[in-house]
């Protein structure tokens, strides 16, 4: 401050002397390093490989599923449903906050125990806070004759697997 006010130094304030230049260089490098650290940390915290179960489920032979039945598998979180129109598979995970729903045979509906959402056996919401219907998963028949379900592929509703 003191040398700035000297009568000789009437230069405009733009002038960057060596000290200021190196200070800026240092601060910019620190800033860059900080940004790099942030991005590096973000990548580090975001796993590249997940050791989670495969999304493809073998639901077994179609004979296992009686006509007009709704079968829940809590391990894989899917319903395998056999109606007059054919077979299809629904997610059993409530679209509200991810709780496991349950098939209520007595009421003929799918109900979520957490916050009271209710769905028809086609996944359509009939009550409760769920924002979306239960998604339909892609189903097909394997070469071995088993019903396969891909939990990673959602299909539009009312696409039945006819056998």
């Amino acid at each position: 401050m003191a040398e700035d006010s000297k009568p000789g130094s009437a230069q405009p304030e733009r002038k960057v002397d060596r000290r200021a230049f190196f200070a800026r260089l240092g601060l910019s490098s620190l800033g860059l390093a900080a940004a790099g650290t942030l991005s590096f940390s973000y990548q580090y915290m975001s796993p590249n490989v997940l050791y989670e179960p495969s999304p493809i489920v073998n639901a077994g032979s179609p004979e296992k599923y009686a006509m007009n039945s709704v079968t829940e598998d809590q391990v894989t979180g899917i319903y395998l449903i056999h109606l007059q129109e054919g077979f299809f598979s629904l997610s059993a995970i409530c679209t509200h906050l991810g709780c496991m729903t349950a098939w209520r045979q007595d009421l003929g509906i799918i109900a979520c125990p957490c916050h009271g959402s209710r769905f028809t056996r086609y996944g359509k919401k009939i009550a409760g806070p769920a924002p979306k219907p239960l998604p339909w998963y892609r189903t097909w028949l394997s070469d071995g004759g088993d019903i396969m379900v891909d939990r990673a592929t959602v299909i539009p509703p009312m696409q039945f697997l006819r056998i």
Binding site: P47, Y51, E52
Partner: peptide, 13 residues
């Protein structure tokens, strides 16, 4: 959610 869980499921991560 992905970063918090270290995956898509509540699992070992």
């Amino acid at each position: 959610r992905f970063l918090l869980l270290g995956g898509d499921l509540v699992n070992a991560n």
